[in-house]
């Protein structure tokens, strides 16, 4: 009988040793947190961009067909109605050609009322000049994601925004290519935009961001693609500076649901 009791005790002891410890000494209490889904709408004016086949006319008279748009978004910063703010420590890589990448999930959002949203189109200087091989596969900056396409295929840091396609000047019959690779620290585009006030209470909200790429070609700097079809944002390249400046006008907050 004693053996049986001892054996039972032993089995109980063995299995109890496998259980994860809980309680105040082990794990901090989990705060209720919500999330925000940010959906990127890629537009030309009010039309949703159709890759390769959609033909769009710029104010300069160029007809543009867009092959793809790729970009990095980072440093989301949410401002509460009481002026305090919450920073989201994450990077996102979107591609027009991959619809799933155009919904960015900001997780771990504290409860509260929000009135403003800030973010970078690109990455901060520290990340821009980091060694991309250090990022885990799941990171947007890893070589399996943006690091492969937006860092290794470029010279200095990350490409922040990459838009490529074909265009035909008003007086021409033949399409040619254009390729705008915007990057370098000085071309980082930072936004801080008011949003319709919304609250998070351990739940999720959908915020739509409308990105009107028509603006990149015309406001405030009218772009004549034929005069320079390619930019790699090298030092002294004014096209990259002018395109980056135009990006400030292309982003608007849409609806919040």
């Amino acid at each position: 009988m004693k053996k049986l009791v001892l054996l039972t005790l032993g089995v109980v002891l063995f299995f109890s040793s496998c259980r994860r410890k809980t309680g105040p000494d082990c794990c901090p209490p989990v705060e209720p947190v919500g999330s925000i889904e940010v959906h990127l709408n890629h537009l030309w004016g009010t039309d949703t961009i159709v890759r390769n086949s959609g033909k769009y006319v710029t104010a300069n008279g160029d007809t543009v067909m867009i092959s793809d748009i790729k970009g990095l978004i980072s440093n989301f910063n949410l401002e509460f109605t009481d002026q305090t703010s919450f920073a989201v420590d994450d990077y996102f890589y979107y591609k027009l050609s991959n619809s799933s990448t155009n919904t960015l999930v900001l997780s771990g959002i504290p409860d509260g009322g929000y009135k403003k949203m800030g973010f970078f189109m690109g990455v901060d200087s520290t990340a821009n000049h980091s060694d991309v091989t250090i990022y885990p596969r799941t990171s947007a900056l890893s070589t399996y994601q943006a690091g492969g396409e937006m860092h290794w295929n470029w010279a200095d840091g990350f490409i922040f925004t990459n838009i490529t396609g074909n265009y035909r000047p008003a007086n021409a019959s033949r399409y040619k290519g254009f390729s705008f690779h915007l990057g370098m620290d000085q071309n980082l585009v930072k936004f801080s935009l008011p949003v319709p006030t919304f609250t998070i209470s351990g739940d999720s909200r959908l915020v739509e961001i409308n990105m009107d790429w028509k603006e990149m070609f015309e406001s405030p700097n009218l772009i004549n693609i034929a005069s320079q079809e390619v930019t790699h944002s090298t030092s002294g390249d004014t096209l990259a500076t002018r395109l980056s400046a135009n990006m400030f006008n292309m982003v608007k907050i849409g609806s919040v649901k």
């Binding site: 092959s67 490529t164 074909n166 399409y175 040619k176 254009f178 079809e229």
Partner: peptide, 12 residues
């Protein structure tokens, strides 16, 4: 000018 030529190649 083949279809879908890389835009980087189709330019200059």
């Amino acid at each position: 000018l083949s279809p879908n030529l890389d835009p980087g190649s189709i330019g200059k």
